[in-house]
Amino acid sequence: MKILVCISQVPDTTTKIAFTDGNTKFAEAGVQWIVNPYDEWYALVRALEIQEKGGSTVTLLNVGPAANDAVIRKALAIGGDDAVRIDADPKESYFVAAQIAAYAKSESFDLVLFGKETINYNGAEVPGMVAELLDAPFISQASKLEVEGSGIVCERPTEAGVEVVSSSTPVVVSAQKGMSEARIPNMRGIMAARTKPLKVVAAVAVDTLTEVTSFSLPDAKSAVKLISPDNMDELVRLLHEEAKVI
């Protein structure tokens, strides 16, 4: 199976979130960048597990500027045969999806894997867009993926229960918790990652559909109201009369 794993670069989960330029840009100074956890822990590791059974190739793909190469190498240290970086500012979901779809189409991948969403934009938008642009089936937010013959079988938790869904290939899958366990890169992986091929591809032109006009921080929470441990009736009263949630 020819597998493409799409990875995003995101700020580390403990990053303090702030904005500059009149709240139009994320403050990047001093930020530690990582591979989006859903992409790394679930999509990439599951692709590697499939590869370890034999007969598959794993290519990593990122849409971003040259500064992203360090994070791409971090992902390559966990595994994968090679990587591709589409050289562009990932300005919006549709732009990123169109880049990925153009590359995936030219290389005829059987399985295109994503994490379920990025931890910075939380949109879960790109995988579905790529599927539509490829005219391919899409299994979103899958918690399990097995190769069966020339197709795949996934589990997908929904509000009604866990769906067991099969699909032909080529197929797009976004992955969430349950699909695999995170791996820590070893020294051999880190050394090997330095020399794995990282191809840079020019971006295709895409119309702009959305623009971020500004960012803001959530309204400051008022200070916590402390209730005496001996007066739980008071807590219940406040939940009913003040918070009005029961």
Partner: peptide, 13 residues
């Protein structure tokens, strides 16, 4: 956005 640590205001054009 940022897992609830901020909000983004988008214009759909």
């Amino acid at each position: 956005v940022f897992s609830g640590k901020a909000k983004a205001h988008y214009n759909i054009v």
